[in-house]
Write a protein that binds this DNA or RNA. Structure first.
Lengths: 140, 140
DNA sequence: TTACTTGTTACACTTACAGTAACAAATTAA
DNA sequence: TTAATTTGTTACTGTAAGTGTAACAAGTAA
């Protein structure tokens, strides 16, 4: 599952939680509504739990519910919770490249550039809250 | 090979071509200098040829050489030449998602958002020329 | 005890990718 | 004409990654 698909799935689940808040709902129920396997969804939700975005409880009457207000959840923290790898990352192979050579210098150049791009993307995501997404969706 | 690695490889090859310009060089020679298989490199270079960035000739005394000045080659056109897929793309599965449902609306939302991110990235790349990279590398 | 739910692991299956080799077509030189 | 060289593309083999599902211990409530 690509990072972007995981992000989209997470937001679908969070929107569902917001709709039924504060009632806790099971992974099966959420999974059914967004068309995904519940086991797979639990793997994603467990990451949101670890990062304090969602609360979970085992047992009967257990399930998931939002731990923060939608206005206080932004895309960047969701993204960071579910994905440790960067969107733009360079597979730098140090083998067979001479020290201080042009290829090595270019590796450093691109590492810097891709880090910059990553910052730009995350800055953009920081400005988008779950609440703003919900508002936009409802006005269409 | 990821898009970012392919981009980095392409620039390494283009820098090499710039160094020896206007002498045409074989894929083996370039591949040797940047530590990659020549067959693999040819697959990348063939895309740059198709997009008018590089010129190629078969046979003895054949090889590759730049078709444009380094100041007139920018990262975005290299990126578009080698990669048709977007950096941020959503695997939208239309199956098992109801029309006009929240999940479907969110799919459209993210398709738009990721398209925006893609534009931002490409705008950034449009401002970077091969010449500016060479200058930066040489001043370090 | 029973029923239910999360969180994690496991597993079979498929897909994707990496790295290399091979070869037709084009080109040059002898 | 023949040989040598080089591109552009295809093929192939082994390995890594991803998909989708199932299974189950641990926690929780009735």
């Amino acid at each position: 599952m690509s990072a972007s698909t995981k992000l989209s799935t997470s937001v679908k689940a969070l929107c569902y939680l917001e709709e039924v808040h504060p009632k806790p709902v099971s992974s099966s129920e959420i999974a059914g509504s967004i068309g995904i396997n519940s086991s797979k969804l639990r793997r994603i939700l467990s990451l949101l739990v670890k990062n304090g975005i969602v609360e979970s409880n085992s047992g009967t009457k257990g399930g998931f519910k939002l731990k923060k207000l939608p206005a206080q959840i932004h895309l960047q923290e969701i993204y960071c919770a579910i994905e440790d790898r960067k969107a733009f990352h360079l597979d730098v192979r140090k083998d067979s490249i001479k020290k201080n050579s042009l290829p090595e210098k270019l590796n450093f150049y691109f590492l810097d550039l891709f880090a910059e791009v990553q910052v730009d993307i995350e800055d953009k995501m920081k400005k988008i809250t779950l609440q703003s997404i919900i508002n936009k969706i409802n006005n269409n």
